[in-house]
Simulated scan of single mutants.
Amino acid sequence: MQSKNKTLVRAMDVLQLFVGHPKLTLNQMTALCGIPKTSVHRMVHSLEEMGLLTKESDGAYRLGLLFLHYGQLVAERLDIRHAALGVMRGLRDEIGEAVHLVMREGKECIYIEKLDTDQPVRLFTKIGRKAPLYAGASSRVILAFLPEEERERYLADTELAVIGTGTITDKTKLRHALQQCRQSGYSFSRAELENYTAELSAPVFNYTGGIAAALSIAGLEVRFDDRSIPELAERLKRAAAELSYELGWNGSLTS
């Protein structure tokens, strides 16, 4: 474990050099960081394979485009969390259930913000929790509004495993649920990620009309009866639309 930590620290030392230098050769990196050239060569090769460094035609290296991708993700998530908090507070106070903000991360979704409720018995969801895109209302909202080709590729490549008693594991049923979500503008799940819980979720769109996040209310299943769902869904959709407009959405969707 210590050797791994040492290697990681050395790799970060190499990357840190690029804060003050747009381009560096292997010799320059070796001279600046004081690490043996053979070690620098190995680390730079690994960093290049991972997309963290890019080698140019003159043999020098610069930071890879992967940093731009990470930077955009961080900026987007910070911006959307900041924009969402007011909407989330209003929704939480109006409905009295926990409110979640969820974004996609590869083949999963990740909970990036949560406002709890004052209910004596509550659903505990940690920020940073992940779930597969096929399970749970928020995941399904994100999957439903992905471009069709991307959505179908995910469905073809993914095995649907049981997580909770209500998890959908039949792809025909899942496709039907996704279609219903696109038509109604919301998704509802019972016991898909945790037994005895329910989640109601609506899409949040960005300025391009693409799916940016999912906004949801969640709690114990007994508090979500069938008669209350339509009204709760309309309140949730209004809040999600408000957040979408704050992100620059003009009301239209990408195809």
Rank of each mutant, 00 (worst) to 15 (best):
V141S: 01
L160F: 12
Y186A: 04
L123Y: 03
S216H: 08
L146Y: 06
F124E: 10
C181W: 01
E149T: 06
T125P: 00
A212G: 10
E192D: 05
I127Q: 08
V121T: 09
Y111R: 09
F224H: 02
S187C: 14
T197N: 01
T167K: 00
D116N: 14
A135K: 05
P132T: 11
Q180K: 09
Y154C: 03
P203G: 12
I163G: 00
S201H: 06
T165K: 12
I127M: 01
Y196E: 15
E159P: 12
Q183I: 10
Q119F: 11
I127P: 00
L174W: 09
F145V: 08
G209F: 14
L155W: 07
G185S: 12
D116T: 15
V162G: 00
G209L: 14
T169L: 05
A131F: 13
S201V: 14
L155R: 02
A135F: 10
T208P: 00
T169E: 03
G106Q: 11
E192Y: 02
K130A: 14
E113V: 10
L215T: 13
A131R: 01
Y207C: 07
V141C: 06
T117S: 15
F188Q: 02
C109Y: 00
E199H: 10
A198S: 15
D118V: 08
R140G: 00
L133H: 06
A161W: 01
D118L: 09
S138H: 06
A191V: 02
I112G: 00
G106D: 11
F224Y: 14
L133Q: 05
P147G: 07
Y111F: 12
V204S: 04
F124M: 08
A161N: 10
G128P: 07
L133T: 04
I211F: 03
L200D: 06
I142R: 02
A198R: 04
